[in-house]
């Protein structure tokens, strides 16, 4: 059990979802970020799986509760229930399989239909280590992210490249939105009830905060 005991001391709890086509590496991104592990023999995710990790942002402890979802379209009826309350999303495609990038638009729509308008979204091109097999250029993906107003990074769960950055960036952006919102309503962000998933609200315009990340490979 010890391995799964989680640190209980945190200031914010943010729910983040991992979505994208089957086989793009969502589960390995999650295990890399939460346990620094990569499995060459991972099985497909059935329904949803779950892990957490806390990071420090400014002087606050931000705990991420990350829901990893099954990629197959058939499961969306089940998995979309888990979008509720999510304040961040990593939308993952595989840089070596073009079809997984083509489907990003559908995933975005799925997200926007089921989540708050202010959700922080990062487009993630995973498997960037497979340089000789690359099918989507960094520029194309970056341009797409700009158009869609999402963050963007390329990662390799295998080589542990940018994985930390991607999650940290999403969590930091959520934190900024939340603390700015709290300031605007004259509230101390740390006074928000602990253990409760924070909603970024709908009045704020977080798009001003969004820019394409510079951390691509």
């Amino acid at each position: 059990m010890g391995a799964y005991r989680t640190e209980d001391d945190y200031d914010y709890l943010f729910k983040v979802v991992l979505i994208g086509d089957s086989g793009v590496g969502k589960s390995n991104l999650l295990s890399r970020f939460t346990r620094n592990e990569f499995s060459l023999e991972s099985k497909s995710t059935i329904g949803v799986e779950f892990a957490t990790r806390s990071i420090q942002v400014d002087d606050k402890v931000v705990k991420a509760q990350i829901w990893d979802t099954a990629g197959q379209e058939r499961y969306r009826a089940i998995t979309s229930a888990y979008y509720r309350g999510a304040v961040g999303a990593l939308l993952v495609y595989d840089v070596t399989r073009h079809v997984t990038f083509e489907n990003v638009g559908r995933w975005l729509k799925e997200l926007r239909d089921h989540t708050d308008a202010n959700i922080v979204i990062m487009l993630v091109g995973n498997k960037a280590d497979l340089r000789h097999l690359r099918a989507i250029s960094t520029e194309d993906a970056k341009a797409f992210a700009e158009r869609e107003n999402t963050f963007f990074m390329e990662t390799s769960a295998l080589e542990s490249l940018n994985v930390e950055n991607a999650f940290t960036e999403v969590l930091t952006q959520i934190y900024r939105v939340v603390s700015r919102k709290a300031l605007e309503v004259g509230d101390d962000p740390s006074a928000l009830p602990k253990g409760q998933t924070i909603n970024v609200g709908s009045k704020d315009d977080v798009s001003a905060l969004k820019k394409v990340g510079c951390c691509s490979v």
């Binding site: 890399r32 346990r35 620094n36 592990e37 990569f38 499995s39 060459l40 023999e41 280590d129 295998l158 080589e159 542990s160």
Partner: peptide, 18 residues
């Protein structure tokens, strides 16, 4: 086979082959 796939790469953290 796996090592062949990963040739020339350094892999951080724990790689599970179980």
């Amino acid at each position: 086979n796996v090592q062949g796939l990963l040739k020339g790469r350094t892999i951080p953290g724990k790689v599970l082959l179980t």
